[in-house]
């Protein structure tokens, strides 16, 4: 299949992280070449004819050719053969994509507005970061908690919708170490374009270490636990923490201990209680310039311990 590389499919495509990605690119290269030839024939033919048969005078005589059965048969038959060939080739690759390997490492992925929640078999949870070992079959079991999302890894040429109320799945076998983008490809509202995760391919040893560390999380310092929660509850998808840049909601950078202007013009100082209230009843005090009702309430969804950790974390954003 070397000659398809002429099409330089990869130069416009992201890195090929898997074997399937290479197969897809070969087929894409073939499609690019045949499409290019087809366009040159049709568009080139058109341009050639219009120039050659340009009107010379208003009384030009034109040929009267109503049809030509042989020609028409040919230009129906040849496209049909090409279309069926690429269909079959596509089917072959698709079959590989859709046949789930046995004994794959299974990871659960939950899409929610606007983050990916990852859960490993040992109960370790992470957000917006999938860590997988290299050269291992991995199967992602997808679902969604609210609306439809779509898990898309351009470098692996795979995509699958995460649908609420059912499981869907995809698999891959990463061959390259490194970090790859995960996009949400199904429109899901306000922060659809911010729902970006990463897929980190590491060595087997690093993966095992990562799993172990995950389990020791309970012993972390309190602000560190808050930081994890901040990611886990997807606060990070709407609030920036390391600069005053506004995402969906106000930045939390250097908020603690400072004055905040509310929508009615009044001012409050951001103390522990203010932060607590903002988490539990986000609409009680809305910062000037931000719409009501965008932030979901976390009342009843996090316990006191977690709340402490979050408040501690916000305090640490100096």
């Amino acid at each position: 299949m070397m000659w398809f590389n002429f099409a330089k499919a990869q130069s416009f495509m992201p890195t090929q992280g898997t074997e399937i990605a290479k197969q897809v690119d070969n087929l894409y290269g073939f499609l690019l070449i045949t499409s290019f030839i087809a366009c040159v024939l049709v568009i080139g033919g058109m341009i050639y004819f219009v120039l050659k048969y340009k009107r010379k005078s208003d009384n030009d005589k034109t040929a009267y050719i109503s049809h030509n059965t042989a020609l028409e048969f040919l230009w129906s038959f040849i496209p049909l053969v090409i279309f069926l060939a690429v269909f079959a080739w596509g089917w072959y690759i698709y079959h590989g994509m859709r046949t789930m390997p046995k004994d794959a490492l299974e990871i659960n992925v939950l899409g929610k507005q606007w983050a990916w929640e990852i859960e490993y078999k040992n109960g370790f949870k992470a957000v917006n970061e999938v860590v997988v070992p290299v050269n291992t079959d991995v199967k992602l079991l997808l679902t969604s908690q609210d609306v439809i999302h779509s898990f898309f890894v351009p470098s692996f040429r795979i995509k699958q919708d995460a649908v609420p109320g059912r499981y869907t799945a995809l698999w891959f076998r990463a061959e390259k170490l490194g970090e790859f983008h995960v996009f949400c490809a199904e429109y899901c509202g306000t922060s659809h374009s911010g729902m970006i995760g990463k897929l980190r391919v590491v060595t087997r040893e690093e993966f095992d270490k990562y799993m172990e560390e995950g389990q020791e999380e309970g012993q972390l310092p309190i602000a560190k636990r808050g930081e994890k929660l901040f990611a886990l509850k997807a606060c990070a998808s709407c609030h920036s923490v390391d600069s005053p840049a506004v995402k969906v909601g106000p930045s939390l950078f250097q908020v603690f201990g400072h004055e905040v202007v509310l929508e009615d013009g009044s001012k409050v100082t951001a103390d522990e209680n203010y932060i607590r209230e903002s988490i539990l009843q986000p609409n009680a005090k809305v910062v000037k310039g931000f719409p009501h009702g965008v932030m979901p309430t976390f009342q009843g969804q996090i316990n006191e311990n977690e709340l402490n950790a979050l408040v501690e974390y916000v305090k640490s954003l100096k």
């Binding site: 495509m13 399937i20 197969q23 897809v24 087929l27 894409y28 499609l31 499409s35 087809a38 366009c39 279309f83 690429v86 269909f87 080739w89 596509g90 089917w91 690759i93 698709y94 994509m97 779509s150 898309f152 351009p154 040429r157 795979i158 995509k159 490809a185 199904e186 429109y187």
Partner: peptide, 18 residues
């Protein structure tokens, strides 16, 4: 021609919703 590309299964898996 790009419609035909999109009709090819694995190609569309990558291109869909892009």
């Amino acid at each position: 021609v790009t419609g035909i590309m999109l009709a090819v299964l694995p190609i569309d898996v990558h291109f869909h919703d892009t």
